[in-house]
Amino acid sequence: MNEKLNLMKEFTKGIVSENPIFVMLLGMCPALAVTATLETSLGMGLLVIFVLTLSNVLISSVRKFIPENVTIPAFIVVIATFVTIVRMLTQAYAPALFDALGIYIPLIVVNCIILGRATAFASKNKVLPSLIDGLGMAIGFTLAISLIGILREIFGTGAIAYGVYLPLGIQGSILNIDSPLFNIAILTGPAGGFLILAVLLAFFNSRKIKKAEKLKAERKRLAKEKRAAKAKEVTA
């Protein structure tokens, strides 16, 4: 029971408390580069889920055989191998996504999240926790870049297209808003990536600050009550 709880924690920490994009600020390059639309973000997220989970599993299962002074090169080779596999699979089954992501597919190799999880977690833990950790982190990454992608696509084009990059079999778009507020062309360009990420980070920061203030106020109130109680005791 306790073990199950721990695994659950490993899984959710990647999504919320240690979210790679919004909390740890890792993997910024793909978060900015491929998030012009929801579909490219989701596509990138799926590739990262595949690579991160498998590389975590493989690295943690061979962690005792890797000599200590070549750990980083060994990890990089493992990650690069999985990236090569997803690159070929994408080219074969989702050519539109392959063209849209372009050089950012091979660049998954140098995505700091993957090497980071390999050194910080997979090289020290058993296979099952590593699998859960990798999956959680990758899903957290996917959700984060999808959020950026949704905002950029809605405010940039006023609609969310589907079936363009992912091989869904159907094509179209939902939520067609015809308003100048939802037609900000710069948001689909490079500047939009920086801007949307800045707004999101500031939003999460402000929530964190509010939470901390609340906690502080709560603690102050408790301390005051305690002091009052003590004073009462003394007078009594």
Binding site: L25, I186, G189, P190, A191, G192, G193, F194, L195, L197, A198, V199, L201, A202, F203, N205, S206, I209
Partner: peptide, 23 residues
């Protein structure tokens, strides 16, 4: 700078403006 924009967020805004100039 407002408290919640300090650090990375405001830097990203600067980067966005620079990216606009480079367009």
């Amino acid at each position: 700078v407002p408290e919640s924009w300090k650090g990375i967020p405001v830097s990203l805004v600067v980067a966005a403006i620079m990216a606009l100039a480079f367009i």
